[in-house]
């Protein structure tokens, strides 16, 4: 069966997120992607706001939180970790956790945090 012909019959907009329970290779709709991107843009704007406005003691925690949220959405949705095989998440999280672990210990041993 030629996939070309098949695909030609499929209207651009028809392919929708509602099908993604069928199998995990179905991706969310474009609208969802745009929505996420708008969210990410807003968060970025707030991040930049910390440069102009004094967030006081919340400065670092809020930045880290926003960074985490952005990270989460890009990995979860744009990279489809939320929909794809959990094994991918494991590989990636393994790298992240390991990196965080060894490097935080290394920086602690170098007394980095004392100087901050």
């Amino acid at each position: 069966m030629s996939s070309e012909t098949l695909s030609d019959t499929v209207e651009a907009g028809m392919h929708d997120a509602d099908h993604h329970d069928a199998d995990h290779h179905h991706h969310p709709s474009d609208r969802k992607y745009v929505g996420i991107a708008i969210g990410l843009a807003i968060i970025t704007a707030v991040e930049v706001l910390t440069f102009y406005v004094d967030f006081g003691p919340l400065f670092i925690p809020s930045l880290l939180l926003m960074m985490f949220v952005k990270f989460y959405y890009v990995c979860g949705w744009f990279m489809h970790l939320k929909l794809d095989s959990p094994m991918f998440t494991k590989f990636f999280v393994a790298g992240l956790v390991l990196a965080a672990g060894v490097y935080v210990v290394m920086l602690s041993a170098s007394q980095l945090w004392d100087n901050i």
């Binding site: 069966m1 996939s3 098949l6 695909s7 019959t9 499929v10 028809m14 392919h15 929708d16 099908h19 069928a22 199998d23 290779h25 179905h26």
Partner: peptide, 12 residues
Amino acid sequence: DDVAIESEEAPV
């Protein structure tokens, strides 16, 4: 089967 093909069939 290519998964790409399957995913096209879904909306149809």
